[in-house]
Design a protein around this nucleic acid. Structure first.
Length: 555
RNA sequence: AGACCCAUAGUGUAAUGGUAGCACUCCAGGUUUUGGUCCUGUCAGUCAAGGUUCGAGUCCUUGUGGGUCUGCCA
């Protein structure tokens, strides 16, 4: 199980309800939640929120959380998705109670429940066409009409429903409906469809069934069967709650309680399955796990630690109003975790050569440098230092402003864990571009044993030319240029695709970096946090920018 | 249009009917061999109008704004 999240905050509204339930002895104080994804796609940041809410709330009250795949629609669901869903939840840091469950585990029980309702005269087989049913349903303002098949006898309904199960009827020819109230202002109460005929292969039950229950006649019943005490779902199911309760009441089964909360939206991200799929299909991104994608697979590859996602979701809070959390919050949580856990390494993203004119040609020194100033236990290592170094092109200016603390003609700068340099000259090419910088070093200014008395305001990173290795670095930025790309009427979200969301560069890195394993997270000193990509090899190391360091420098 | 739900700084989220707080962002400073981290500070809020009350962000009414619902999807 995951590390404890901060426990200082006050209870959210769901926790208050549960807290009251416990105080009142409801369900003998037991708390049991569930995460019920449909196995027809990949999990994204929105699912992460639901996962964190369900697992953390249960944990907080000493309860359990089930994983249940809501597989009642055989046409869209696949085993392949199940495996990815399980992997993503585990990666996020959670373990569900026992084995994962499936709504399809309960098909027989659900069938029995339906028979029970028919026997009570509360359900009937309807021969109407889909069009007729839609027509008779009415609209929110006009009451619906009763189906002409509504008053069939219990015996006939029983016989017909059994016939449905026994493959006697073609797809779409009949449905089983709950006898609700066709004049209810709540559309879900207007004789909700319980079963439809689909002669299709199911990923788990194979060809055992040709009738499948609808969400409304499967979800709440599954909750009940599993003894779910608090069924937490998103706000769009609010209108389903009367039906959820109606079935529990008529079926006389364990009374799970549905509580709705607002789904989480994040700026610059979209979570629409259809829109995400289009990005993949039309090659805007490399796949569902492209590091720019808001999928858990994408964020994992990007290098965002699961703990950061947990804290982000937890700190975003739980309430009922529509929200858009600023992506800056996720970035904050990401940096927060990475700052404490990653080793600092030297990597020059945009190299400029520096020659130390008074340093011997063939001398090599090994400079001791601490791996993580935030965590002494991470130790230190040695960096090769020589006469020619790469520094960041941004760290040199021909004519720098006064507040620029880096290198410029006549200026001093400290090389991190090295010497202080004094810039004496530089060389440009025909276009005026600086191609080489010439410096002198102060031999008695070595890091840790500096007796020079020389002042240097800035500190820059570097790597020895003779020892540097090339590495592919994928610089990622937000996928979209607009905080709410899919909320503009008349404008397609693809218009906001950020063409600069990926830039591939070749960096000069310290030699040890070609040995790192995929998945490893590092801080490139003064630049940002990076993660070794799954494409990475010793011959061609690949790093993904997770998130840059904050940069408060401006002219 | 009818039903249901929601409304607190830029963003998100708190506040038994009793001092509107926290976090992120922004801005300003301090520390720093990362212009990072850390620390301090500033700016900034109860949708509107009535009502109940000694007292309303909280309760009531109306309005305004937003969300969900008219799949044999979940």
């Amino acid at each position: 199980m995951s590390e404890e999240l901060k426990d200082s905050r006050s209870l959210n509204f769901i926790e208050k309800i549960i807290s009251d339930d416990i105080a009142n002895g409801k369900h003998a104080g037991k708390v049991h939640t569930r995460f019920p994804p449909e196995p027809n796609g990949y999990l994204h940041i929105g699912h992460a929120k639901a996962i964190v809410v369900n697992f953390e709330i249960a944990k907080k009250f000493g309860g359990k959380t089930n994983l249940r795949l809501d597989d009642t629609n055989p046409t869209t669901e696949e085993t392949h998705y199940v495996e990815n869903i399980k992997k993503d939840i585990n990666w996020l840091g959670y373990e569900w109670e026992g084995e994962e469950r499936y709504a399809s585990d309960y098909f027989e029980q659900l069938y029995e429940y339906a028979i029970g309702l028919i026997k009570k005269g509360m359900a009937y087989v309807d021969d109407s066409t889909p069009e007729e049913i839609a027509e008779m349903r009415g609209t929110p303002t006009v009451p619906g009409k009763n189906s002409p098949y509504r008053e069939r006898s219990v015996e006939e309904n029983l016989r017909l429903f059994e016939g449905m199960r026994n493959e006697e009827f073609p797809d779409g020819s009949k449905v089983l409906r709950a006898k609700g109230d066709m004049s209810s202002p709540n559309m879900h109460m207007r004789d909700s469809i319980m079963y439809r005929i689909k002669h299709e292969h199911h990923h788990r039950t194979g060809d055992d069934w040709c009738i499948y229950p609808m969400y409304d006649f499967a979800h709440g019943q599954s909750d009940s069967i599993e003894g779910i005490t608090h069924s937490l779902c998103s706000i769009e199911f609010e209108n389903h709650r009367p039906l959820y309760d109606w079935y529990i009441d008529k079926l006389e089964i364990f009374p799970s309680r549905q509580i709705e909360f607002a789904r989480m939206n994040v700026s610059y991200m979209i979570t629409s399955k259809r829109k995400l799929k289009k990005l993949v299909d039309e090659k805007y991104v490399s796949g569902w796990d492209d590091p720019r994608m808001p999928t858990l697979a994408g964020m994992r590859r990007r290098g965002i630690p699961p703990k950061a996602i947990r804290e982000f979701c937890d700190e975003a809070g739980v309430a009922k109003r529509t929200n858009v959390i600023e992506i800056e919050k996720l970035e904050y949580n990401t940096r927060q975790v990475l700052n404490k856990t990653t080793a600092r390494v030297m990597a020059v993203l945009n190299p400029l050569k520096v020659v130390i004119t008074n340093y011997p040609e063939d001398k090599v020194e090994y400079m001791e440098t601490v791996n993580n100033p935030e965590d002494e236990s991470m130790g230190s290592r040695k960096l090769p230092f020589s006469r020619e170094l790469y520094i960041e092109r941004d760290d040199f200016m021909i004519d720098p402003p006064k507040k620029f603390f880096r290198l410029g003609p006549g200026r001093n700068v400290r090389l991190k864990s090295g010497y202080i340099l004094h810039c004496e000259d530089f060389k440009t090419d025909d276009s005026g571009e600086v191609v080489e910088v010439y410096c002198a070093y102060y031999p008695d200014s070595k890091s840790g044993e500096d007796t020079s008395g020389v002042k240097a305001k800035g500190v820059i990173h570097w790597v020895s030319v003779a020892h540097a290795k090339d590495a592919e670095v994928r610089m990622y930025d937000r996928l979209f240029t607009d905080p709410t790309p899919d909320a503009h009427e008349g404008k397609d979200y693809l218009e906001f695709f950020n063409e600069k969301s990926l830039e591939v560069i070749t960096a000069k890195v310290e030699p040890a970096l070609v040995e790192v394993e995929p998945g490893r997270r590092l801080q490139f000193m003064r630049k940002g946090y990076f993660c070794v990509d799954t494409d990475s090899t010793k011959e061609n190391p690949v790093f993904n920018l997770t998130i840059s360091l904050r940069d408060s420098w401006k002219k």
